[in-house]
Amino acid sequence: MEPTAEPTFLGANLRVARNFNGMTLTELAKLVSVSHAMIHHLEAGVRKPGPDLDAALAQALGFETDFFYIPLPEEFHEEQCQFRGRPMPASLKTRVLAHGTLFGSFVRFLEKRVKLPPVAIPEEKAGDKETIERAAENCRRRLGIGLDRPALSICRVLENWGAVVTRFEGSTEKSDALRVDAFSRAGVRPVVVLNTDKGSTSRSRWDMSHELGHLVMHPGLPPGDPLLETQADQFASAFLLPRVGFLREFHPQKRLSWDTVWGLKLRWKASGASIVRRAYDFGLIDAIEYRRAWKHYMYKGWHKGEPNEPDDEAPELVPQALEFLRSRKGMSTLDMAKTLGWRAETFERIVGVPAVPLAPTPSQGGSIVSLERVRKRMA
């Protein structure tokens, strides 16, 4: 009988776990009492850890030791992802990419057990503004929502077309958190990652529409080109506020009426800032009025939070998949975390759902019923 092959320690997994936690080589080395060079050698695959170091690394980073021996399906790299936001420190971008990598491995885990919607994001060529307007209009027609009514859920649009939407914690430092609005990666299964720190549901809808624009118009194109970001913004504007409906409802104004702006926001679920900009782009207000409106907008503090925000659009695909595995397969989120080699707190950070065991059934000793609940039902 041939001896069982010894599992291989995967340095890439250690690097991803360290980046996910925002740690430098030196910080992790100090935490587990080894040299900076030792961590570097482990990540490069030059050295292997002993059992004690293995366990210490797992504890320090929030994973089980098994995680270091489970190959990651694919790693997210900067050149594959479209980032929306201000220029950010390399350390923050690295951490966000590591989060995406881990979430991507969770999605592959789901795909092996649940039938997710097929990837059906249409491809449209981007060029001048008119081309982008038509691209957004074609997407709306494919969805059957036409050009004269709002898209009720941008998140549902993405998920129905096969993308998986999730959220990440921007940063413990608020100034860093706001540097990343969202990012997307096409890949075999498109992933859109949103910032939980935005604090504005209308702007979150804009971010999702922006990333949809990238997935529709820019598959395979290298990121980082400011032109692509401008095109994705133009797509978001045209998708959220289609010109046919917008021109019908917003009439030329010498003096901007904010009552009109907030009324349109309630109907179209787009930010007041995007509505004012759309009006200016169509010549419905002139340049002087646009500048005056923007100055008033800043004076009122609406850039920090607008009135009349729409309801939040929480991702639905992952929660539905988790419920299917729980109810049909008897698999808890804690079971999933263990299979992936993640600790419970790490699973919640990556997926946004607590890792807990299945709730006990009456046959499992959970037969005690609250009298208060019985009385409420009787009442």
Results as ranks from 00 to 15, higher is better:
residue 347 F to H: 09
residue 254 K to L: 13
residue 252 P to D: 04
residue 318 V to Y: 02
residue 72 L to C: 10
residue 67 F to T: 08
residue 316 E to P: 02
residue 145 I to W: 01
residue 208 M to C: 08
residue 284 L to E: 04
residue 296 H to N: 06
residue 104 G to D: 04
residue 30 K to P: 00
residue 32 V to F: 00
residue 178 L to M: 08
residue 150 P to Y: 01
residue 199 G to Y: 03
residue 6 E to C: 09
residue 188 V to R: 12
residue 167 R to H: 06
residue 59 Q to D: 06
residue 19 N to K: 11
residue 112 K to F: 06
residue 117 P to Y: 01
residue 282 F to Q: 03
residue 114 V to I: 05
residue 223 P to M: 06
residue 63 F to N: 05
residue 181 D to H: 14
residue 360 P to F: 09
residue 176 D to E: 07
residue 60 A to N: 05
residue 344 A to F: 03
residue 165 V to A: 04
residue 4 T to A: 14
residue 290 Y to R: 12
residue 123 E to A: 05
residue 123 E to L: 08
residue 36 H to C: 08
residue 41 H to D: 08
residue 56 A to F: 06
residue 237 S to F: 12
residue 182 A to Y: 02
residue 167 R to C: 12
residue 97 L to H: 10
residue 44 A to G: 10
residue 136 A to Y: 11
residue 275 I to P: 02
residue 302 W to D: 02
residue 174 K to I: 15
residue 158 L to H: 07
residue 161 W to M: 13
residue 271 S to N: 05
residue 176 D to T: 01
residue 149 R to E: 09
residue 100 G to W: 00
residue 264 L to G: 05
residue 127 G to P: 11
residue 163 A to Q: 03
residue 111 E to S: 13
residue 69 Y to G: 10
residue 19 N to D: 05
residue 209 S to A: 15
residue 316 E to H: 08
residue 16 V to K: 09
residue 141 R to Y: 11
residue 38 M to P: 09
residue 222 P to K: 09
residue 320 Q to E: 07
residue 235 F to A: 03
residue 256 L to W: 13
residue 144 G to L: 01
residue 32 V to H: 00
residue 7 P to E: 00
residue 278 R to K: 12
residue 50 G to M: 06
residue 82 Q to R: 14
residue 191 V to W: 00
residue 53 L to S: 01
residue 84 R to C: 14
residue 144 G to Y: 00
residue 118 P to N: 00
residue 139 C to W: 06
residue 31 L to C: 13
residue 372 E to I: 14
residue 207 D to Y: 10
residue 106 F to H: 07
residue 299 Y to Q: 10
residue 317 L to D: 02
residue 367 S to Q: 07
residue 172 T to S: 09
residue 330 G to Q: 05
residue 272 G to V: 11
residue 351 V to H: 04
residue 46 V to T: 14
residue 45 G to N: 04
residue 57 L to S: 04
residue 161 W to R: 11
residue 12 A to D: 08
residue 140 R to H: 12
residue 237 S to L: 15
residue 176 D to S: 08
residue 23 M to L: 15
residue 145 I to K: 01
residue 216 V to W: 02
residue 361 T to W: 05
residue 342 W to Y: 12
residue 196 T to Y: 04
residue 51 P to Q: 06
residue 75 E to Q: 13
residue 259 D to W: 04
residue 104 G to V: 09
residue 148 D to Q: 14
residue 114 V to T: 01
residue 78 E to T: 12
residue 200 S to I: 06
residue 205 R to P: 04
residue 36 H to L: 07
residue 234 Q to I: 14
residue 297 Y to F: 15
residue 9 F to P: 09
residue 160 N to H: 13
residue 287 A to F: 07
residue 74 E to D: 11
residue 76 F to S: 08
residue 173 E to K: 10
residue 239 F to P: 10
residue 106 F to V: 10
residue 350 I to K: 06
residue 298 M to D: 06
residue 225 D to E: 03
residue 167 R to T: 14
residue 210 H to Y: 13
residue 359 A to P: 10
residue 181 D to V: 15
residue 80 Q to V: 11
residue 42 L to W: 05
residue 68 F to R: 08
residue 261 V to D: 01
residue 150 P to W: 01
residue 215 L to A: 04
residue 138 N to R: 15
residue 291 R to V: 15
residue 364 Q to K: 12
residue 336 M to N: 09
residue 363 S to I: 14
residue 365 G to M: 07
residue 310 P to Q: 03
residue 300 K to P: 04
residue 7 P to K: 05
residue 91 S to V: 15
residue 166 T to P: 00
residue 136 A to S: 13
residue 2 E to G: 10
residue 122 P to S: 01
residue 335 D to V: 14
